[in-house]
């Protein structure tokens, strides 16, 4: 069986200060809202790292579902009860090159 490719996304939220868990929950909620539970199950979404000082998070997703996850992230307008926006700062195939990019 061919190994599925992954991508690592570096996210930054602009206004709210959520915990890593809250940010991941918001992304899950957005994916489920836009693509449903079946669509969400095909994203392979998981939180790799969260930096509370810089308000950045690293998410891992399947390459095939990356556009869906990006669209879902763009649709997030509220985080922990505050108006917020989450932007994708960088996308990379490995964690090493993602860290080199930032």
């Amino acid at each position: 069986m061919k190994r599925a490719k992954r991508r690592y996304l570096l996210l930054q939220d602009s206004e709210a200060s959520p915990t890593g868990r809250e940010l991941l929950d918001a992304v899950w909620a957005a994916v489920t809202k836009l693509y449903g539970e079946v669509g969400a199950s095909q994203t392979g979404l998981s939180l790799i790292d969260y930096d509370e000082e810089r308000k950045t998070a690293v998410l891992r997703v399947w390459l095939a579902a990356m556009q869906q996850v990006r669209a879902s992230i763009a649709s997030i307008t509220r985080l922990v009860g505050k108006d917020a926006a989450v932007h994708v700062l960088a996308v990379s195939g490995t964690l090493k090159s993602l860290r080199e990019k930032t």
């Binding site: 990006r70 763009a74 932007h87 994708v88």
Partner: peptide, 8 residues
């Protein structure tokens, strides 16, 4: 706050 990146 509702502005998004072009790629997004």
């Amino acid at each position: 706050l509702l502005l998004r990146k072009p790629m997004e």
